[in-house]
Design a protein around this nucleic acid. Structure first.
Lengths: 332, 332
DNA sequence: TTGAAAGCGCTAACAT
DNA sequence: ATGTTAGCGCTTTCAA
């Protein structure tokens, strides 16, 4: 790989001048041409590592997500990328697997690689980002809260749970169950609290929320499957279900399909999107989480910080958008 | 951020000794302890940028994929990551959007960032990786061929197309159509050639392949939707369909569902996996592409090259595994 | 075994 | 406007 020294030699100027041309500082037009020609001829690409060591920063943003295989996070990633690219930054995606150790590892890498900043969907509330913040590397939290005083972009999870549940009642269902994630994760708890709130007001039993109608599962497809199976096996099974994320929704729909039940015969509302649903997209109620928008917003905030913005930490809360599913035919 | 100089000062040794301790060179036990303690105390993390500038390499592998939102590629990414992590390498995921310009950009970044190697699912056959190969940076192609003489890991696409189509005939369908990707992309053409081969042998019309039974679409969900709609609108519609990738399969199933048709009433075989199908996983025939395995294999080859292996370029072809869907009830 | 010193490629004072 | 030079943090000869 050619260096600025070789370019300088060929162009008959000093390395500093080459650097200036590269970085758009004032250089006489003739020398600019000389340098550009030499660079072209030598197929010169500036060495980003050296530049970085010198500048203590790079045009690289790290995006840490818990699961690249979850469409929600990939959509978010697209949002980050779109925004970052247009600002001349590149995004490296790191998969934390919801494992705090991996997360820490990637945070350290981002730090010691002198990346410009980090967007983090935290796997726990107490990740250690001090290494970064100590060096003034901005970190923006997305989708999940941290205990830290940093910019964050969240979804109104409670409202999403309320919207999903209300839509089912509106459509005429009356025994609405909930497949929620594990206890202790704020995002899923908030969504199921939304469910609880609506059910206690509009449900069958006059404000009584049947405990067997809420199932806690791992938040993956198999969790949704198990929970749906349990609901169907109840003595007095529900006639509709809210799932607090996309993957559990997939599992629930699979089990229904295997039982020969197709929405809207049984009501299904999912908090999240089902981009690869093999059902007609409007057979089910979806509370579309603004995943991509979450990404662009987070990237925006991060870029502002990188540019030197020092205002106090902000939290932006985005709202989900409902797509009402079909009404059960039997009730028409 | 602390540097080795500060660690050295605190430990009362030279920077060289600190470096030796970090890299496991021979140092007296006492000094090792001294250095470790000092490092601990200062919360020292070696600066990877500096290390890289010096060593001309890093423990970073770039993985360039056309679409992070496609489950096939995310599964592949997981494979790469698993293998890479266990070898102490980190993976950065770059999304090329099937755009040769973006691909080139990321290749240049990988190069000028001194990454250890690149795994590339090429967006075209003639990407320019000379910058990398000139510097002895290994590049492994995955899923798609390049015109270049490099290691590659492929799928037997023809066999996958044959398997999908044969499975439908075996299940009793006789008018088997094909939803294929755009002409000119090798992977999808190979799969549809597999279809053609089987149909010409086992189809209704004695070796005649009805031209209206093959639909070329973009390879995304909406392409699958349009193609399926066109097939259903035919005078003599098919009773089953093969799609040459996962996303078009999703689109086809959506349209069927909207038309009130549920497999196995209509046969569907998909080359690829439907991890988020909302149908029972065994209602449809899937030719499972070994996406993850593709990733681990590519990572293995790349790691060997990074370790200095110089044997001639190899091509590994992996085979897909069939999951037979249900048999149409009406034919039982 | 340990230290001194050079150098990876670049940029930014500083001097001219 | 341009050149000289120091230094970013690390590793690795070379000498001791």
């Amino acid at each position: 790989m050619a260096t600025i020294y070789e370019v300088a030699a060929l162009a008959g100027v000093s390395p500093a001048t080459v650097s200036r041309v590269l970085n758009g500082a004032a250089v006489s037009p003739e020398k600019v041409r000389l340098v550009r020609d030499a660079a072209e001829q030598l197929n010169f690409t500036p060495n980003r590592t050296a530049r970085r060591l010198r500048n203590q920063t790079s045009e690289l943003i790290a995006l840490l997500i818990p699961d690249v295989e979850n469409p929600f996070f990939t959509a978010l990633a697209r949002g980050v990328e779109d925004r970052a690219q247009s600002a001349g930054f590149s995004v490296v995606l790191c998969n934390t697997d919801d494992d705090p150790a991996k997360e820490t590892r990637y945070l350290d890498i981002a730090n010691s690689e002198n990346m410009a900043g980090v967007i983090l969907a935290p796997s726990s509330e107490d990740g250690d980002i001090r290494h970064l913040t100590d060096r003034n590397r901005p970190v923006v939290a997305v989708d999940r809260n941290t205990g830290l005083n940093i910019d964050s972009v969240m979804v109104d999870n409670r409202a999403a749970g309320i919207a999903a549940t209300s839509a089912l009642f509106d459509a005429g269902y009356s025994r609405v169950a909930c497949i929620a994630g594990p206890l202790g994760l704020e995002w899923t708890e908030e969504r199921s609290l939304g469910w609880r709130q609506v059910v206690s007001r509009r449900g069958d039993g006059d404000g009584v929320v049947r405990p067997e109608y809420i199932q806690h599962a791992n938040y993956r497809v198999d969790g949704g499957r198990a929970a749906m199976a349990a609901l169907l096996a109840l003595d007095n099974p529900p006639d509709a279900v809210v799932t607090t994320n996309n993957l559990m929704g997939v599992g629930a729909l699979q089990v229904l399909s295997e039982a020969g039940i197709t929405p809207p015969e049984f009501g299904v509302a999912v908090v999240g999107d089902l981009p690869f649903s093999t059902l007609s997209p409007d057979a089910i109620t979806q509370v579309h989480l603004p995943a991509r928008h979450l990404g662009t917003t987070a990237a925006n905030m991060l870029l502002e910080r990188i540019a030197g913005d020092t205002q106090p930490a902000r939290t932006v809360v985005l709202r989900a958008a409902l797509t009402q599913g079909a009404t059960p035919a039997v009730r028409r």
